[in-house]
Design a protein around this nucleic acid. Structure first.
Lengths: 219, 219
DNA sequence: CGAGTGGCTATACGTGTGTATAGCATTCTA
DNA sequence: TAGAATGCTATACACACGTATAGCCACTCG
């Protein structure tokens, strides 16, 4: 841990601090965490913004590095794999924080998850595991944003503000979510397609009509 | 608009500013927005935190005031009604911001939405519109957190940072979401219940086993 | 051995923030 | 009409933050 060059140690401490307390963590706090004077941060990175950019780059690099080769079922579970492989570091917490505040890392991460889901869902669709959609791309966005966004709000509801332990976050959320999520994915929510049909009919006259194939009710 | 007492005007301007640029909006920015000196804010409210608390209270009061009497289908749509009734003010944007950062208003709002959903879903379930769940309470939390959380992330993906126009936010999200959301709710995602079954079996030995009724695959 | 170089600290500076203070004007009241 | 209270402004203060500066210490290389 201490064999790292001080520069890298500062960077990692910054990632930890940002994950733990948010992006308004102080330069002095980061310095203390790294066991280093505050001035050294300026000396190495020039400015706090530059440090933040380097943290972004490092986190993105780590995410790409452990690029999920085997995408599991739900995005939530895929995310679980990330936190797992990260050896419970704060990479995932940093990413969550960035997603929450609309940062660069967050957008890239979400786009990446959507891309991954596209492949997996496409394959599962071809093999008959997953039902086709009238708007596949929008469905991918929905699945990913709802999974990650729902996760963030579950954490809020439980009063969790420290994002440094990624694995813990995953576990908390999946404990209270996995079952009903799978249930929703397998049985849906509505007993018939009347509401969907009504919606499709309502927007039928619009210029940009979705290529909606009304699916019959599922028994 | 100007017939309001200056105190109320400051409060409303603060709500606007918080919705538009976030909770780190400056006292001086708020003062400028209200057409008032910065000192007057201290004079009336004592501190910025106290002002924030009063904003929270006011927003909660407004939300309760237009208490959704007719809950529509999805939480997203119920939320749409709120922004509508608010005459496109920034109450909803303030609420979203609070939800995002885990504030008091946000938690109360989410709890309220879950309570509302409990009533509506219960009724719809009794009338056969909505399928029963093996864990109804967890499903309510899932539906609400995923809807609102997904909305926030959709906004992030589209680069929207100004939350002052609540109706606009709703429209943007529902445009790209409504169809696939209804589709997911009516047809589900998976073609059979094998994954759900496997999950249920896996957690069968645990101490806290969910009262899971494995539902058969929907044709 | 001695000068230079790079990693690092201690201190200081400027700025923006929330807040306190003093004073002014206007309006209500006796 | 005099006086006081109230609503408000202008200015100043304290503090925390990011950042710049000067210097120290150790190590290296000629």
């Amino acid at each position: 841990m201490d064999d790292l060059t001080a520069r890298a140690r500062i960077r990692d401490s910054a990632i930890d601090a940002f994950a733990a307390t948010g992006f308004d963590a102080t330069v002095r706090q980061i310095a203390a965490r790294a066991g280093v004077s505050a001035g050294l941060i300026t000396h190495h990175f020039g400015s706090k913004d530059a440090l933040r950019l380097e943290c972004d780059a490092e986190v993105l690099r780590r995410i790409l590095e452990l690029k999920v080769d085997t995408i599991r079922m739900s995005p939530t579970q895929a995310v679980g794999r990330i936190a797992e492989l990260d050896q419970y570091g704060s990479t995932f917490g940093y990413t969550l924080r960035s997603v929450r505040e609309g940062g660069e890392v967050g957008r890239v991460f979400l786009r990446g998850m959507i891309d991954d889901a596209r492949e997996y869902v496409g394959a599962a669709e071809a093999s008959g595991m997953i039902r086709p959609s009238g708007d596949p791309e929008a469905r991918l966005e929905l699945l990913v944003t709802q999974s990650i966004g729902g996760m963030l709000l579950q954490l809020n509801l439980q009063g969790i503000t420290d994002f440094s332990n990624g694995a813990e976050l995953i576990q908390i959320v999946s404990n209270s979510t996995s079952f009903v999520l799978l249930e929703l994915y397998t049985q849906g929510l509505l007993t018939d397609s009347s509401i969907l049909d009504a919606y499709v009919e309502q927007v039928a006259g619009a210029s940009t009509e979705p290529t909606a194939t009304t699916t019959g009710s599922n028994k």
